[in-house]
Structures are given as structure tokens and as C-alpha cells.
Design a protein around this nucleic acid. Structure first.
Length: 220
DNA sequence: CACCAGGCAAGTA
DNA sequence: TACTTGCATGGT
């Protein structure tokens, strides 16, 4: 099988195995943006706790968070970890949203993808994964989200190099797949589901993994 | 107890 | 440029 076709074949396998994931797990584009920052290097379970706190305090809106003191925000999001850093990052992002998009997350969809991506990346605390998550899951822009699971799963099966960086992995996916937001949306979600179940760090591949029939590294 | 989780920026040489 | 380190809570 050609390497490019493997990306499509794996998508089909994962979809058949896990079914549609209906990502991003949030009730609004604004919640996607908040969650994208809070989930940096953090389990979604902890992020959900922090978001629930914000919701219970009636603070899950642009106006509420944009006007809140950074120390108060940090106290509220404590359960997600790195709360001081993330409070500052979220405030930086909200300030950019106010200046560039009048505080409207949905306005990001009206920019071109490269323009919106550059605006997001210019925010201190927003890197490529956070930016792409917002672009894809909050604004519907067709960009592929690469995360730790993506790197681990696909390098383990020799479809990307172990040394590949973010952009290189993203390019591999976007060169192999049609440019469709719905496809990128579902594929990333399926990779996370696969990763959570079968590709945790320093755990060898097991026979139950849907990709166990592919060539792969044997355990370390 | 050690290790991990849907990163990122700042510091060091 | 290429590593390394700090950030922090909650689960296994």
C-alpha cells in the first residue's frame, strides 16, 4: 500500500472501530477556545472540571472572562493544572479576540485560514496545536490538528519520522487527505480515542489495538 | 512511590 | 540553532 493511502485506510479503520466522535466536546465555539488552552498537556477530565467551575459561576462567556482579573480566573481554573500560566494565556487570547474579532469567536471563520492562524500564533501561549484546534473545531477551518498521540501512533507505525516536528506531520496528513474540515475533525478525534485506549506512553502495542496488524515498533 | 495527561515559552550554551 | 526546564492538578 502506498504511504499516502495508509492515512485514508487508517481513518476508515478507526471510524469503523470507534464510530463518529462528535468532537469537540463543548457546547459552543467559545467553550472550544477556552478548552483548547486549558487542555494543554492536561487530561480532558481535569479540563472538564475547570470548565464546569466556570459555568457554575456564570463565567463561561467572552465578556465575563475578558473582564475578570487574571488572579480570579486562575483560582477558578485550578483543577486543570498550570492554572497561573493558563489564566494568563487565556487572557492574552481573549485580548486578541477583542481587538481582532470584536470578541466573537465565530468571526474567525470569516478570515482566511492563514490569516487567522497567524493571528492566533501571535498570542503568547497559543502554539500550533492550540491554534489549529480553535481554527478547526471552533471556526470550521480545514486544518489538521497534530497532538502527542498523532506523533506517537504514526511514528510507531513508520508513517512519519520519530524526529518529525509539528508542521511536518501536519503536512503529511494534509497531503494525503482531501481538504475537508469534517474529515480533519473526525480523524483527529479518532486518533485521540485510539491513543487514550491503546497508545499510552511507554506501553507496547497490544493485539486489541485496531492498528496492530500494521508494521510497528516492538516495545522498548 | 513513580509516571502520565489532547503544550508552550523562556532560559541556557 | 538545539536542548532543557518550569508550570500543577488528579488519575493509575
Amino acid at each position: 500500500m502506498a504511504k499516502g493511502e495508509a492515512f485514508s485506510a487508517i481513518f476508515d479503520l478507526l471510524l469503523a472501530r470507534f464510530g463518529p466522535q462528535h468532537w469537540w466536546p463543548a457546547d459552543s465555539p467559545f467553550e472550544v477556545l477556552v478548552g483548547a488552552v486549558l487542555t494543554q498537556n492536561t487530561s480532558w477530565q481535569n479540563v472538564k472540571r475547570a470548565i464546569d467551575v466556570l459555568r457554575d459561576h456564570g463565567c463561561l462567556s467572552f465578556v465575563a472572562l475578558d473582564s475578570m482579573a487574571v488572579e480570579n480566573l486562575a483560582a477558578l481554573i485550578r483543577p486543570c493544572g498550570y492554572h497561573s500560566v493558563k489564566a494568563k494565556r487565556l487572557k492574552n487570547l481573549l485580548a486578541m479576540l477583542r481587538h481582532e474579532y470584536a470578541g466573537e469567536v465565530t468571526a474567525i471563520a470569516r478570515d482566511t485560514l492563514p490569516t487567522a492562524r497567524n493571528k492566533l500564533l501571535a498570542v503568547s501561549g497559543v502554539g500550533p496545536e492550540t491554534a489549529d484546534s480553535i481554527l478547526l473545531y471552533a471556526a470550521g477551518h480545514p486544518t489538521f490538528v497534530v497532538d502527542a498521540y498523532t506523533h506517537r501512533v504514526f511514528s510507531r507505525h513508520f508513517l512519519v519520522s520519530e524526529e518529525s516536528g509539528y508542521e511536518e506531520i501536519q503536512d503529511a496528513f494534509m497531503a494525503a487527505l482531501p481538504t475537508e474540515a469534517a474529515l480533519f475533525n473526525e480523524y483527529h478525534a479518532l486518533i485521540v480515542e485510539l491513543g487514550k485506549q491503546f497508545c499510552k506512553k511507554r506501553r507496547p502495542l497490544c493485539a486489541a489495538c485496531p492498528l496492530s496488524h500494521l508494521p510497528h515498533n516492538v516495545g522498548e
